[in-house]
Design a protein around this nucleic acid. Sequence first.
DNA 1: TTTCTAATGTGACCTGAATCACGTTTTAAA
DNA 2: TTTAAAACGTGATTCAGGTCACATTAGAAA
Lengths: 220, 220
Amino acid sequence: MKSVLCDLQDDEVASLNSSKRGMFFKKGQTICHEDSYPQNVYCITGGMVKLIQTGTDGKEQIVHFTSEGDTIGYREVLGGDMYSSSAVAMEDSAMCSIPRALFISYVRKNPKVSFKVIQRFSKELETAERKIISITQKPVPERIAQSLLLLEESYGYEDDGMTLNIILKRDELASIAGTTRETATRFLRTFERMKIIELTGKKIKILDNEKLKKSARLQK
Amino acid sequence: MKSVLCDLQDDEVASLNSSKRGMFFKKGQTICHEDSYPQNVYCITGGMVKLIQTGTDGKEQIVHFTSEGDTIGYREVLGGDMYSSSAVAMEDSAMCSIPRALFISYVRKNPKVSFKVIQRFSKELETAERKIISITQKPVPERIAQSLLLLEESYGYEDDGMTLNIILKRDELASIAGTTRETATRFLRTFERMKIIELTGKKIKILDNEKLKKSARLQK
DNA sequence: TTTCTAATGTGACCTGAATCACGTTTTAAA
DNA sequence: TTTAAAACGTGATTCAGGTCACATTAGAAA
């Protein structure tokens, strides 16, 4: 197990192994519900899971993607909050659950683990803040370009070295960029016409990384 | 000192007191610059400080307000990052600085302190995520109402129990709500006409808290 | 395979809010 | 107290992007 718990001591690893429980979710299934009380922290051992929040009018907004090695619900468990987002399997996914109290005790008792959590939170906070700026100040096409770069960073390429190694529906991509399905489609098409990307079904091939970066105006 | 460091051990408090340095900033002065390397963590002992990020076109976006008891720069120090925002004194402000390495060692060595940091980060993350949803999904007037409620929560009222105990320029309020000065003005006026608030100079008096909450559509 | 449903692409239209422009008021400085 | 600069209010205008409507395609189920 990579992630925050990789610095546990031997006896703790043993106790963890006996307490954790393997689980399996089919594509589309919900792992945990927004606004429910977290009983467990989930470590994804396979597949891909999206964290979504439901907005005012029921529109879903993607908060995060998580995949193998990521942990779900630890923010809420450590903060003592309800789940702030629902976790939904985007493909058949496997994970193991760790009881809430146990997870907390690991974090509390292991300075190394604590510090790792701190560093992770710190990164997440930075990302969130950047996203706020981006959404309030950048026009949609830039945000889409930026989202593509984000996906590149997180999931990398397929063997051809150009095709993004993740498959998203248009609404999902739209949700990352903070726009609508239709608008996302339109600008993806624009990028395609500009020979920056190539679309084949849901696959996105990045033809011109430089231009894409330019389109995202990523000075920083 | 409230805040994250209140659980230090005696000898640490002593060492802290000898290492920390009092500082004073005049209104408008910059305490630390975005994208510079953080040498210190600052604890505000008086006054009020805004954290701002500069967007693509140089437009400033307010990320946070901080006042007495708050700490500036610990996110960056703990994450090992550059300052992600500049801190600017909104009024004459006093603070004390703690050297970076010292602060880190306090956090690393004290499980209680670590855990407090974790909880604080957790809260901040939740707030940030909520803000992202809000900005992408709520129209401006709702966001303004929400911003007012946020200010109420953070700064409370003056002695009359109705006037917000913080003074902001229109652009600052606009920046919190993620809009422009003009638009902020307009909707504040609208709220005033609806007898929800009353504006006297920069002072904002909340006449009808219920209606305000309704305007923010704060189901959650 | 066929059938049904979900996902997608695209044009037409509409609107919320940004931008522009400018007069007025407030604040700070001299 | 005068003066200059910053902050504010408000109307007119513009436009990015959301919404709607519908045709097309892809995927899943039967």
